[in-house]
Design a binder for these strands. Structure first.
Lengths: 126, 126
DNA sequence: AACGAAGTACGAAAGTCTTCGTTGACATCT
DNA sequence: AGATGTCAACGAAGACTTTCGTACTTCGTT
């Protein structure tokens, strides 16, 4: 339990668990099958692997085991953003942000939200 | 030649080519060996694979071939940021940006640069 | 009790990524 | 010319990821 970086398929599963909360394999599969055509046993296997890695935990008291994300969503998000910043932006958060907010890619709403957030930040951190 | 997303090792090599411009295998290896202990033939092989994928081009007129990035750095950066936004932030650029600029992670300078950039944006886009 | 449905566990296959050893070509130095 | 060093090319091994088939178990229904 040291490398907290999930693979792509694992991240998709975590996305479901974060969105829906604790879920059975069937429930996770129900979400993922339509959008990526993944098989039931594949989801099961992935969840077992993720259990090994400590990415999820589960409750086995019922016959259908209930899985739950074992890490905060924000902690994964932080890790992934830092990773990308270092690998593709020479460690510059500003550069990354300008790409993410480039008007061709981000909505005016996104930009407004960030602006408001920055203003609030200024108020609390003189 | 459709999926422009480089793997991790490929991205490291592209990073060198973007920073140094057209380079021989030896030059790329000279940068990467100290920081990740990678072998010479590994770099060579990677560059050959990247040539196949269209990520780099090369000049073979001299005995030591000279490789050059075949794609813009910004185009890769855009792809990677969009990818991360969709996979880990529910498609929300604002959410991604707030993580990237969180004061624990970003320097005050980064934040100031983004703020200035946003101000400039407002001027040009009423 | 027997059957079928729903579930978990396991192993293996296929694909991708990364790594390097080995080979043969070419150049340079003695 | 022969030895030495540098280089590209190739193949293959090992790790990791993703996928699913198959087998076994458990529950509910007939």
């Amino acid at each position: 339990m040291q490398d907290k970086r999930p693979t792509e398929a694992e991240l998709a599963i975590l996305g479901v668990l974060w969105a829906k909360g604790p879920s059975t394999v069937r429930a996770v599969h129900g979400v993922l099958e339509p959008e990526r055509g993944i098989g039931y046993t594949t989801v099961l296997k992935l969840l077992q692997i993720m259990l090994d890695k400590g990415l999820v935990c589960r409750d086995t008291s019922a016959r259908s085991h209930v899985y739950e994300a074992a890490i905060e969503r924000t902690s994964i998000q932080d890790a992934l953003v830092s990773d990308l910043r270092d690998k593709a932006f020479d460690g510059s958060a500003a550069s990354l942000v300008m790409h993410a907010l480039s008007p061709q890619r981000a909505s005016a709403d996104d930009i407004a939200r960030v602006r408001a957030w920055l203003d609030a930040l200024e108020g609390t951190e003189p």
